[in-house]
């Protein structure tokens, strides 16, 4: 231990290392690309079977994209922590003296990166399968909405994922805890996306107040997570 533990590693460096580690694991294991992305696509197809009406589908496309994202978020978060808790890696990171705020931000960034790719695919699926039209004016709104909503989802997901990591019955507990919390993201992102698609006669400008809600949500839970993540994962 001589001299090594003298200077704590900065939060940003911990975050970078953790995010790189998580993304590298996902890239090599290919579970996300081979299982989670196809699952999300399947959900989109299933929605079409259930609703069975082209007009209804294009009207509710925004909501379906975000619902499919939420379902996938549960799987992504569970995977993110299962990889760590399986062999006590999360405890090892704590014992190694890594700042829990850094671990939180790092894991959230990794989840965020995976979610953004997933959302791009889902939006593409909405355009192809549900026949929604996206105009140039809606693209800026959509991109901002995706960034803010994804940040909020990733922070909340990581926060509650950390709490349930290693707990008995975490598969069922995580959705119960997380879904009520992310309800504002579902509402806000859906409305903003509908405005971007101009579905149901919505104007693009209607979507911007919702992006504000999404941004506030992301900031609130980023701060909440940074402050409390250490307490939640402590054994």
């Amino acid at each position: 231990m001589s001299g090594l533990g003298a200077r704590p590693i900065s939060i940003s460096r911990v975050a970078r290392v953790i995010a790189t580690k998580d993304l590298r694991i996902e890239l090599r294991s290919r579970v996300v690309t081979n299982q989670v992305f196809p699952f999300a696509g399947l959900v989109m197809v299933m929605f079409a079977f259930a609703l069975d009406n082209d007009a209804v589908l294009s009207r509710v496309a925004g909501g379906l994209v975000w619902l499919a994202t939420l379902f996938s978020l549960i799987i992504l978060v569970q995977r993110s922590f299962a990889v760590d808790s399986a062999d006590g890696a999360l405890e090892a990171q704590r014992v190694a003296g890594l700042d829990p705020a850094g671990i939180f931000i790092g894991k959230a960034i990794a989840v965020m990166a995976q979610l953004v790719v997933l959302e791009m695919l889902l939006l593409l699926a909405a355009v192809v399968l549900y026949r929604v039209e996206l105009h140039i004016s809606g693209v800026v709104l959509l991109v901002t909405c995706v960034i803010c909503a994804t940040a909020g989802l990733a922070f909340v997901g990581t926060l509650y994922g950390g709490l349930t990591a290693g707990a008995r019955g975490r598969e069922t507990l995580l959705p119960l805890l997380m879904l009520p919390v992310v309800a504002p993201v579902l509402i806000g992102a859906t409305r903003a996306t509908e405005s971007a698609f101009t579905s149901g006669g919505a104007a693009v400008s209607d979507g911007w107040p919702w992006v504000g809600v999404l941004a506030v949500f992301a900031v609130v839970f980023a701060i909440g997570g940074i402050l409390s993540f250490g307490s939640l994962i402590e054994e």
Binding site: P180, I187, R191, V213, V216, G224
Partner: peptide, 14 residues
């Protein structure tokens, strides 16, 4: 306590 006002506000706006 953080979540409930956000839910209420977003439903109100919705």
């Amino acid at each position: 306590v953080l979540e409930i006002p956000l839910v209420h506000f977003s439903v109100l706006m919705w």
